[in-house]
Write a protein that binds this DNA or RNA. Structure first.
Length: 979
RNA sequence: GGGCACGUGGCGGAAUUGGUAUACGCGCCGGUCUUAGGAACCGGUUCCUUACGGAUUGAGAGUUCGAGUCUCUCCGUGCCCACCA
């Protein structure tokens, strides 16, 4: 065998794999199980890749290759997210058309990826800047608009004066523009906003949902068309299995209008529990009055309503078991009789009678033939990412309480509503604060006579408006504010009049924009009160609500309303007592969706001066035109506004013809990436975003790998769009990414982030050239736990290279005859089987570091043997194939194999060889290891105890001492306690 | 200030449910080969101790026959969020 020449073999096999299309994803087919593994697609910046970028791609490539060998139809695609500021700024800097720059960068990225030897099916490549792609991004926008989830707003938004564009809340980090670090300003302007807050509760709840909370059976009989003219609804419902009063017979229902045969079903109405619903439905549909609720037995979700009642409903059915006390029966309602017949059937007959998957499934649950599935979590995500999303969504419950207002001593009709999580401190309120942007302030300032210090207030409000986010939200700065002279608020708990202040420490866009200040129990209020010399009143003693204060006030009838020590229910009781409302608030804000920049998807609407006219679907895509200057205008309009020819559109014919203007704002970078994973399922479809058949087959992304920095942007936006697409029936799953894993950064050798600025960037091309792609792959995986940030070490990489060379040189030791084969030690064979098991498990869980380690141990063991049987060597190569695809292929073919190792069958561990009959038993005396001995795996406790006490090393420590206790763990250890 | 994660040799890091801590790799030390250097290969390598032995998973406590692993307190590091009422 020649020396290991990585340059030659890597080039050779990359060419060969491309020619033979071995990585082409199969068409949706039921024959093979599917596996969809996805990397977060990159945006192709001008800088190219450094060694940190491919880390995640290598990890998914390994899983993808293993799954392929395990017989899965693998979807492992790659594409480019090329709209947005980075690409545009790069284009501006280099004075090239972004289209040209993007094409160039994409080409470079692909080349860099190719030399690492990934198994991407490039025939499915998507690019968010391709009109054929963004046609569907625009289509989704139109749907959002149609459903009232996209709206125009004129509220002040975050504005980056350097990028000259509005930003979403998510794009602002510490008050600065996430891209260019410029302090963000507040600027009122017209903008498009997506109502993501409407999904806040679902985005939150599904983080902790179980699989059983989503539809278990997705099959529908007949048409699977969702009626776009009807709203989509979900509801709770029941399926009742009713047993006859004396015989072993069950009540079934046969629909007259279609072939639907099952049990009595019905929706749970308001105020009902499941048992009540079942009894009522049975009485209505069958006429039997005396049904008794016995128990529930499981659940299934089905589109029953969709089919029978022709509405868009996805019902979550709970199975309810009922027994009839007697045969008392009324005539069922005429309406029900027309719809269905009821019949009594024996257990055997029921099995045959049922003709629907969902009903059969419930029957199997009832008879015990099947067990309820789906108790696994809906999302297998790292807890840290889930937690980041929970914090971002920021749900909090509290009270909205109305304070009456007096201006110039006169009571006003409108009230000031404050939001508080601590209504129990209502008696400690000494003033009320409103945000400078609050509508009440604006209203008040309209009439000079309202305020004695009108001019001061105007000044303060104006100064708050021009401050940057950083200046305003710096927690360290002294609290500022101004009193509304002549205005008082009335505390609804005790009728006390308190002053009202305007202060910028109250945020306009959280809660109601007004707070009741309790300086004794809130740090911020305390700081403000100290500064302005305001009263401080304590109400809470030792953390408990001072009940007497409330009871004494006469607002609460008796202490019983506190419901014991439950602080939440007492808070609710207090809220109620002052006429307030218990509400849920979220920190999550609606998604500012328009950018005043060139390089993005045009928002597909027209303006006729008064109204917004959506571009009709057939006119999509609205293509991004070429312009002379890409420079942002800074006026709140995008450079597109300068192209009269594009902006002015003639609509209508003849007399009705008129000129309308195109929307010139574009979409943010996050638009295209919010749904790209769906397009990979069916990347070329000109008629649909994704074909339902392909969508049902590929279902969800099984495994998604990428940077944790996307926790609160990409991953929330994508979940939002996905849920929306689910609601309009475009897709069939509730969540886009089943399992998620985040990649840890690769730092520079100096421990700092890899950056041109620090001069610590390592280019993968150089590493591939010197050590080979296979070595790079093995090393990056071997470095440490996948999700951890670890510093690059070029000296450490030689260990991975040496390991590969050892496997390469082992080729000469492959046995050529039976005698040689027989010389292979048994323990090496046992280790091989153990390693097969471990590597399979480790790779599936992205524990590639320990997979590599166990392969090293295995090859060290093989090296000790005089020769290695071909089968054993081939198994080693197969295990190595995902990690070092080129070398494994070369060695595999050198053994005479004709087909690629990457389409061979993954080895299976021989379970019988995993069981060792002899094990080492450790003996501890007073917790310290004093000896060990070999024993049969199934040795009895008594024998182990005897053997342990008989050991010389053990005797030494037990002699002359009283043995107090002996603990024997069979197959593991004997622990002796002496006094 | 809040949340989450983590803390193991000179370094990167291993350690199913509590059951022989330091696997694997780097580095280092010694050896073989070589004119030499390097490469490759072989052996050694947690610390203290000549040894017997002892100590050791950030510190301290607890539960247990037994704790890197579970509980509590503290210290430190990293990430995310933050005038969110």
């Amino acid at each position: 065998m020649k020396k290991y020449d990585h340059k030659k073999i890597e080039k050779k096999w990359q060419g060969e794999w491309e020619r033979s299309h071995i990585y082409k994803t199969g068409a949706p087919a039921a024959k093979k199980p599917k596996f969809y593994i996805l990397d977060m697609f990159p945006y192709p910046s001008g800088e190219g890749l450094h060694v940190g970028h491919p880390k995640g791609y290598i990890a998914t490539d390994i899983v993808s290759r293993m799954k392929r060998m395990q017989g899965y139809n693998v979807l492992h695609p790659m594409g480019f997210d090329a709209f947005g500021l980075p690409a545009e700024n790069y284009a501006l800097k280099t004075k090239t058309n972004p289209r040209i720059a993007v094409a160039k960068n994409v080409k470079r990225y692909k080349k860099q990826l190719e030399i690492i030897g990934f198994d991407y099916d490039w025939s499915r490549e998507v690019n968010t800047t391709d009109p054929k792609y963004y046609k569907w991004t625009q289509w989704i926008f139109l749907k959002l608009l149609e459903k009232g989830l996209a709206y125009e707003s004129y509220e002040p938004i975050n504005w980056c004066p350097s990028c000259k564009t509005g930003l979403a809340n998510e794009d602002v980090v510490d008050g600065r523009c996430e891209r260019c670090n410029t302090p963000v300003e507040k600027k009122p302007m017209r903008q498009w906003v997506l109502r993501i807050t409407k999904y806040a509760d679902r985005l939150l709840e599904d983080l902790d949902a179980k699989e059983s909370d989503v539809p278990l059976i997705k099959r529908t009989i007949g048409s699977d068309k969702v009626r776009a003219d009807l709203p989509f609804q979900e509801r709770h419902a029941i399926v009742s299995i009713v047993k006859h009063w004396s015989e072993d017979k069950y009540l079934c229902s046969r629909y007259k209008k279609n072939d639907w045969q099952g049990f009595i079903t019905g929706g749970v109405e308001e105020g009902e529990d499941i048992g009540k619903t079942a009894v009522r439905e049975v009485a209505e549909e069958s006429g039997y009055e005396s049904a008794r609720f016995v128990r529930t037995f499981g659940r299934v979700d089905s589109q029953f309503y969709h089919e029978v009642k022709n509405v868009n409903r996805f019902a979550h059915f709970t199975g309810v078991y009922l027994e009839l006390a007697d045969g008392k029966r009324n005539e069922p309602a005429e309406e029900e009789k027309a719809l269905a017949d009821v019949v009594w059937l024996s257990k055997e007959e029921v099995g045959k009678f049922l003709n629907r998957e969902d009903m059969k499934y419930l029957w199997d649950l009832f008879t015990g033939k099947k067990k309820q599935e789906g108790e696994k979590p809906l999302l297998e995500w790292p807890e840290s990412i889930k937690e980041a999303q929970r914090n971002w969504i920021g749900r909090s419950e509290g009270a909205e309480i109305n304070f009456s207002l007096k201006v110039g001593g006169k009571e006003r009709s409108e009230k000031l509503t404050v939001f508080t999580t601590r209504p129990d401190t209502l008696f400690g309120v000494t003033y009320v604060v409103v945000a400078p942007e609050h509508a009440f302030v604006t209203e008040l300032l309209k009439h000079k006579e309202n305020l004695k210090n009108h001019d001061d207030v105007v000044k303060y409000v104006a100064s708050a408006r021009v401050m940057t986010e950083i200046e305003r939200t710096d927690a360290k700065k002294d609290k500022t504010g101004v009193k509304l002279e002549g205005v008082a608020a009335v505390n609804p708990a005790n009728g006390e009049e308190v002053p009202v202040y305007v202060a910028d420490y109250v945020l306009a866009d959280y809660g109601t924009g007004a707070v009741m200040a309790v300086p004794a129990h809130d740090e911020r209020d305390y700081a403000f009160a100290k500064r302005f010399g305001l009263k401080i009143v304590e109400v809470v003693l030792g953390g408990d609500v001072s009940k007497e204060a409330y009871i004494g006030s006469g607002k609460l009838a008796n202490s019983g309303e506190f419901s014991g020590s439950d602080s939440e229910s007492s808070k609710k009781a207090i809220t109620k007592s002052v006429g307030g409302e218990w509400v849920v608030k979220y920190k999550l804000k609606d998604w500012v969706f328009s950018r005043q920049r060139y390089w993005g998807e045009p928002i597909p609407v027209l303006h006729d001066g008064t109204a917004v006219i959506p571009v009709s679907e057939k006119d999509l895509p609205v293509e991004l035109p070429n312009v002379k200057s890409y420079e942002p205008t800074g006026t709140g309009e995008s450079p597109l506004a300068g192209i009269a020819k594009w902006v002015n559109v003639k609509v209508g014919r003849g007399k009705d013809a008129k000129i309308v203007k195109r929307e010139t704002n574009t979409m943010p970078q996050w638009a295209g990436s919010s749904w790209y994973y769906l397009r990979f399922m069916d990347p070329k479809n000109p008629k649909k975003l994704v074909d339902p058949k392909a969508e049902k087959y590929w279902n969800q992304v099984d495994f998604y790998v990428g940077g944790a920095e996307h926790a609160t942007r990409h991953l929330i936006y994508a979940r939002f769009w996905h849920k929306f697409l689910y609601d309009i029936g475009a897709i069939s799953t509730k969540e886009p990414f089943k399992k998620l894993q985040s990649v840890g950064l690769i730092m520079g050798e100096d421990g700092r982030k890899m950056s041109k600025r620090f001069g610590n960037v390592v280019n993968p091309d150089d590493i591939v050239s010197v050590y080979g792609a296979d070595t790079l792959r093995v090393y990056e995986m071997f470095m440490g736990p996948f999700d951890q940030a670890i510093a690059w070490s070029t000296s450490g990489i030689v260990g991975s290279r040496r390991f590969l060379e050892r496997v390469w040189n082992m080729r000469e030791k492959v046995a050529s005859n039976e005698t040689e084969e027989a010389s292979f030690p048994k323990q090496a064979d046992v280790l091989l089987n153990k390693t097969i098991k471990k590597v399979s498990e480790d790779m599936a869980a992205l524990r590639h570091n320990t997979a590599v380690s166990s392969l090293m141990i295995l090859s060290n063991e093989f090296e000790k043997a005089p020769s290695v049987p071909r089968a054993a060597y081939e198994a080693l190569l197969k295990l190595l194939a995902p990690l070092a695809p080129h070398m494994a292929e070369e060695l595999w073919r050198s053994l005479g194999n004709k087909k690629s190792i990457h389409v061979s069958t993954w080895p299976k561990a021989d379970e019988s060889k995993l069981v060792e009959e002899s094990v080492t038993i450790v003996v501890q005396v007073n917790g310290k290891v004093r000896g060990s001995f070999e024993a049969s795996k199934n040795a009895a406790k008594d024998d182990l105890e005897k053997a342990a006490l008989g050991l010389d090393e053990v005797k030494k420590w037990t002699e002359g001492k009283e043995i107090r206790k002996i603990i024997v763990v069979p197959g593991k250890l004997v622990s002796i306690v002496v006094s």
